[in-house]
Computed example of a mutant assay.
Amino acid sequence: MNKKLKLFGLILFLLFSGNELRAQESFISDISYPYLEKLIAIAKKNYPEVKVRQSQVAIAKSALNQSKALWLDAFTASYIYSPKNSLNLITPTIFNGYQLSISVNIGQLLSKPSAVHSARESLNVAQYQQQEYLLSIEAQVKRLYFAYLESQAELRVRASAVLDGETAVKQLKYSFEKGETTFQIYNEALTSLYNQGSYKVQAELAMLTAKANLEEILGVKLEEIK
């Protein structure tokens, strides 16, 4: 009788422990912050959107340098050559030889400070956007890494539940064949084992999906990261 009670208690555990098992496994101890920092560095190096932000900053820097150089556009230099032994009755000149003249476009000269300021602000915007995205991708890597660890912990729970269920079913099968338990209890154990197997398959899919999501932002397989 005592043995039957133990077997019945085991069946109850299998039938009702599906949701409670989740609380028995923690992934906190699996977290490696040095490894996480490595993942963040790899994502910042490989993810295409990061490279887009870098290119935008480079373009903005180039535009700023170009706007500074365009100051010279407001000035126009020219020269006039008057031979020493020539007489120009239309536009008589005092000096002979080469004469240099410089003209200034006041409108262009006054517009340059505004253009330089605008280019500098565009560079600031590009840099702020780059900094914002780097913070965003860092947070995203952390979330995906934690989700991957959580899915691994969940899979361990489900795999352990399947092993426990298989052990219980074997014991109940032996007891049923000896007439020590009913077919109903044995059948409930089989049903519970089937459910735990289904939960395990779902946990495997969740783990593979979490791994794929993390690898997508890293640009490399986790197996390649030492």
Rank of each mutant, 00 (worst) to 15 (best):
I90Q: 06
I80A: 11
V50P: 00
Q66I: 10
L135T: 14
V162A: 09
L14N: 00
I94V: 08
A74P: 01
Y47M: 03
S17H: 02
K68H: 05
A60Q: 02
S32G: 07
K211A: 05
L70C: 00
Q196M: 12
E49R: 12
Q130M: 09
A159V: 08
A159Q: 15
E188I: 01
L193N: 00
D30L: 15
N124I: 14
Y174P: 01
K3R: 14
T93A: 06
E215M: 08
Y145R: 07
E25L: 09
I90G: 06
Q131Y: 09
G107N: 13
V50R: 05
R53I: 00
N187T: 11
V201Y: 10
K6Q: 12
Y128V: 11
E166M: 07
S118M: 12
L36T: 09
A41K: 15
G18T: 14
Y35Q: 10
Q171N: 13
Y79R: 10
E180H: 02
S114Y: 11
N88F: 14
Q129W: 02
N88P: 06
K44L: 11
E132N: 08
A212H: 08
S114C: 04
A189M: 11
I106C: 00
E177D: 13
Y194I: 13
R158C: 10
E204Q: 15
L36Y: 12
F95C: 02
A74F: 03
S32A: 04
I225F: 07
S118V: 10
S26C: 01
L72T: 09
L70Q: 12
S175E: 06
P34E: 04
K45T: 13
S114L: 13
E138W: 01
V104N: 13
L89H: 06
A23F: 04
K44W: 06
V201R: 12
A115K: 11
I185F: 06
E204A: 10
T209W: 07
A74D: 02
Q152W: 06
Y133A: 00
G165P: 03
L87K: 15
S103E: 03
A189T: 06
Y199S: 07
Y35W: 06
R120E: 12
T76G: 11
S122A: 15
L15T: 04
Y174R: 15
F8H: 14
I102K: 01
K68D: 03
A203E: 02
V157D: 11
Y194T: 14
E177V: 00
L134I: 10
V162C: 09
Q66H: 05
I106V: 13
F95N: 12
A168F: 09
E138T: 14
I102T: 08
E49G: 05
F27V: 01
N65A: 15
K112C: 03
P83N: 04
E150G: 10
F16A: 02
A77L: 14
L5R: 07
V57R: 11
E223T: 10
E25M: 08
S118Q: 12
